[in-house]
Amino acid sequence: MPPTNDQRGRLIALEGTRATDLRRAMERTRPRRHPLRAAGGVSWWDASGTFYEMWLGKRRHLTPSPRTLLLLYASDLSFRLRWEIQPALAAGRTVVAAPYLESAIAFGRASGLSRRWLAELFRFAPQPDLCYRVKEGKKSSGWKGKPTDGFAEFCSAVLSETAPSFNSVDLRAAMMALLDASERRRACRRLAS
């Protein structure tokens, strides 16, 4: 029997610029926030293996632009929705998605892409029930993690090799400012430490 609206699960988005912070927050969020729904799932970046495969297999062709990277992120998100998020929600479970929409949109805006294009690109993804902004560590630096750790780390590694004027510290600062703005307009809440 399909679940009724009351039984439908909840989608919680965690947004931030560093995979380390997102992972830490995800571990905390899952059991603590929803103890009655401890069986809930998580949906982590690159569940489809798209970015991992690209990094492993075709480094010499790894010259995508920010727009191409976002198209690939959207395809991975479509995979996550189809195989992880929607089945769990339909079964009445809570799913924590890290990252979800806001981080990718912040990356796109910080790279100079239009708000309208980004909104249209992610139109297929349902809005989360709750969106949390994770606490950012090492705010004044770029990304130090491995490219396969997270979306922003991957983009930083790729763009630093291909775009002559790319500066990871500036990009991360711009992404953080955009996530701050989404917090101010209450699209995301600050996740308590």
Binding site: K58, L62, P64, L71, L72, S75, S78, R82
Partner: peptide, 29 residues
Amino acid sequence: LVRPLIKARKRARALGAEELCLLQAADFR
């Protein structure tokens, strides 16, 4: 960049319509 990904996923018959569209758009771009 994208062809090997599309090929592998097509072989596994694992692609939804949106995902296929987005991968092809990435390839095109």
